[in-house]
Every structure is written in structure tokens, then in C-alpha cells.
Design a protein around this nucleic acid. Structure first.
Lengths: 257, 257
DNA sequence: AAGTGGTCTAGACCACTAT
DNA sequence: TAGTGGTCTAGACCACTTT
């Protein structure tokens, strides 16, 4: 297995025969040069026409490469002026739910146990959140996610009770929670909101999660809406803080793929 | 100020004279149709050639519109098959540091108070994190961020002591923390990592932040690297949980700009 | 006036999926 | 084989900044 492309480091160019498309190659080339300090933060990278000339690529392809760096917040463009390298900053960091999702993506190790699933009468809080009248019916589901035998996440969710659609049954059936995370396409939800809050375990939660009360925890609140904008479900995950960290990278990290 | 474009809702098309470029108009049109349920999750949107025909736009421009929806995770493309509407899912949610940054972006309301700034001898933990020998010199800075007179964030940071560069002075001088968040371009940092952890206030932190111990809090750990990959600084922000929430939206939220 | 990025065209060829 | 998305070209014109 010999890779002939291994030593074109001295003056790298675009390999038109490579599996990687030209725009990706150029994006990685520029990213690496920025990461190596060839172009410093605040400075300008070569103009698009210069890059076209230098790498023998058409304007649209060069633009596409630069667009990638813009999306990654590595550079920013100023019309009429140039493309500038951004300094790494905390403000631009992004993090995703991947870490949380990974906790129970592995179906072999993860089980979902339903503690409770019943019809309740909505109290003030539930009613106002689900935009229904207090005392109206709603569904309450409480479950725990178990990984390798240990309870790691507690989930509580209120669902609007609506006999005209089988959302209730569908939701009850989702014992793997995949619908919430992967998006099954079976539900007809339009959009949702998610909030991450800092919390400590209540006595009840600590009991369920085999942990001690007052332990640091994340509370991930979620609310989903129907196509007409009315709320459909409201709930939250409680996860022990020592089981979950949200990570993000800042600045230039070349991906190569 | 009359806007003549206000009532083309019945069968919307692309307005070539509008300030908004065609690719953005099409992206918003598709997003709205998905949000209204015209195209359901799991279903296919019209093919690129169909969209070209329907809206009288060239292929590259249509592709650009679709790329926007792909980036927003509203649709996903399968080569040779089509472009499919994704179901909203928690797994795809993204968070930014914007909320945190906003807490002290307003310079009028925010002050930074340096509690301490001194040269220390690195203990085991600091030494291994900054990749120096235990006992070697390092800088410790402790500050609080004050908004409207109330202390809201506590910041502790260890910096590698390196006489060959003025990073120390530069860092000491950054009383607004802007360097960390906006990216001043004065530093020569290459990249960094950020971790968000759940925590409770220690006695010391509670005292500094005028809060009670054991209160829920976020701990935002950060580490920055130089161009050669060596760590330059390590530190963390502690923020009361009742002052900070990370928000994200899921699914189709048309932006219109 | 010259140079920069922003938009857009009207095709081309390719890789892949469906049938 | 027909249709789909993926890549790329070689220009065009525009808006904007710099000098």
C-alpha cells in the first residue's frame, strides 16, 4: 500500500486526479497554512483571482473553498477589501448534542425503562407551556436511560393529549428515544427549541439515578411544535454532570475529509 | 415607505429586482414550504432540474440554495436519489457561545475586576496541562466580571510564562476579555478547546459571586494552543446557573435575511 | 481607476441510484 | 437507461473598498 501523494508537501498544489475534489483540497491547503501561521490572524489571504492563478482553478471553485473557511469561522470576507484570517475566539465556538446523543446511541449497551406513562390533568405550568387550559388532559411519561446497567439519564415529558392523531401511541412506542434524536420522519413535528441549564439533582432524581442529591447535573429542556406552531410536547433530560461534557474546538482544525 | 413586494404570497416566485439574491429567496421559499408541511419529513423536494425549470434559475444557483438547507440540517442529499426533508431531532441541535458572550458584550454595563495577577510555581496539574515542568514559573490571573454592579462570572486562568513574547503583558492588559471572545488578532494563538461542565459553586466561588455555595453553575473550561501546538493558557469561567442558559433551535426556522 | 468579493449563467462531465 | 446530485468551467456583471 504505497501512497504516491505523500510527499508533495514542499509546494503543495491541487491534485486533479485525487479522490478529494479540488475545492476541498484548496480549503484544506488554506486551513493548514493558516494553522501553520503562514497567514496570521487579522491578515489577508491571497485574493480569489490570485488563488485562481496560483492553483489553476476557476473562480467559482475558489469561492467554494473560501466559503468553507467562512462557514468554519476561520476567515471572514469583506467585499471590496479582501478575505481576512479571524483570530480564534471563545465567542465563535459551537458545540453540538453529539456528546449527549452518543451516550445512548449504542443500542447494545443502552436500555430505556419506562417508569410511568399516564394521563394527567394539566397544572398551571404544564397548561401554559402546552398552550392548553388548566385541568385539560395531558400525557406524562417518565423514563430512565440505562447504559451498562447504570441509570444515566432521567427523562420527563409532557405531551399534549390529542385523540385526532396517533402521536400518543407513537410516542409511547418510542422506547429507544430514537425519534427524538435521529428524527424518524414518522412524526409530523415542525420545529423545536432546546435549552441547556445547570442544575443539581433533586432527591427524587438522585434516587432514580443512583447518585447523591445536590450533585451537579445538566438539565436539557426541550419543546416541540406542530406545523401550526402550537406546542406538542415539553420535557427535559436530567443527566449527572460527571457523565457528560460538551466540547467544542476553536480556531483552525484541519479536517482532511 | 410602501413595500410593493408584500403580496406575492399566492404563488411566490423569484423577484430578480429584490435586494435579496435569488439563491437566498429560493432557500427561504423552500424552508417556508417545509415549515408549512408542503414537503413532509422523509419526503423528497423537487429535483434540482425541476427547481431550475420552475423558478427559471440556473443549476448552480439552485444548488447554492439547497446547500443552505443542507448546512442548516433541514434537508439531506443523496447522490443519484434526491434531496430529502429531515425530521427535526435533538441530535442535530447546535449551540453557540453567543449567550455567554452577550452577558458582558455591553461595555457600558460590564466591568472587569482583577482580583489577582501573579507569578506562581506550577503544581502538578498546572504543569501537566501547560506541558511544563512542575515548579516552573506560570502566571495566575483571577478576575470577576461585573454587570450592573453584580458579580456574575468568575474567571481563573493559568498562562505559560514565556519571556520571549509579550503575551503576559498583553493578557494582563485585556481587562475587557475581548481578546478571548472577539479575537483581537494581536495574539498569535492557533486554536483552542472549550468544555462545558456542570458544577456547583464552591465556598470560595459563592463568596466571590455573592451567591450561596452548592448553587448550580456552569464551568466553562478553555485551553489555547500556540502555532506549534503547545498549550499557552488554561483556565475556566464559573457562572451561576441562574444567569446563563444555552439555547438552540431545531428544525425549520426561516430566517428571511 | 483598479482591485476586491458577491451574484449568476449555461452549459459540461462525472458518480451514483433507480427501474 | 434515465434521472439524480456532485464537481467544475470560463466567463459575465455588480457592489464595494482602496488608492
Amino acid at each position: 500500500m504505497h501512497d504516491p501523494t505523500i510527499k508533495l508537501d514542499h509546494q503543495a498544489g491541487i491534485d486533479r486526479g485525487a479522490r478529494q475534489p479540488a475545492y476541498m483540497q484548496l480549503a484544506n491547503l488554506l486551513t493548514e497554512q493558516i494553522a501553520r501561521g503562514v497567514f496570521l490572524a487579522g491578515g489577508r489571504i491571497p485574493s480569489e483571482s490570485e488563488l485562481c492563478e496560483q492553483y489553476q482553478i476557476s473562480p467559482m471553485t475558489v469561492r467554494r473553498s473560501i466559503k468553507i473557511l467562512v462557514d468554519k469561522r476561520i476567515v471572514s470576507t469583506i467585499q471590496g477589501s479582501g478575505t481576512y484570517v479571524r483570530a480564534p475566539s471563545l465567542g465563535g465556538a459551537m458545540f453540538s448534542m453529539e456528546e449527549f446523543h452518543n451516550m445512548f446511541k449504542d443500542k447494545e449497551r443502552t436500555k430505556v425503562k419506562i417508569l410511568e406513562a399516564l394521563i394527567i390533568e394539566a397544572d398551571e405550568t404544564v397548561a401554559s407551556t402546552l398552550a392548553i387550559a388548566p385541568g385539560e388532559r395531558a400525557i406524562l411519561i417518565r423514563r430512565i436511560l440505562i447504559r451498562d446497567g447504570d441509570p444515566i439519564v432521567y427523562h420527563k415529558e409532557y405531551l399534549k393529549y390529542d385523540p385526532t392523531r396517533p402521536l400518543v401511541e407513537a410516542e409511547m412506542e418510542v422506547t429507544s428515544l430514537d425519534g427524538l434524536f435521529v428524527g424518524t420522519g414518522e412524526t409530523k413535528l415542525k420545529s423545536g427549541k432546546l435549552a441547556i441549564k445547570a442544575a443539581v439533582l433533586t432527591n427524587e432524581e438522585a434516587d432514580i439515578l443512583n447518585a447523591v442529591p445536590m450533585q451537579p447535573a445538566f438539565r436539557l429542556e426541550h419543546i416541540f411544535f406542530d406545523f401550526d406552531g402550537t406546542p406538542v410536547s415539553w420535557g427535559w433530560f436530567v443527566c449527572r454532570g460527571d457523565c457528560l461534557v460538551f466540547n467544542a474546538t476553536i480556531g483552525t482544525v484541519s479536517t482532511h475529509e
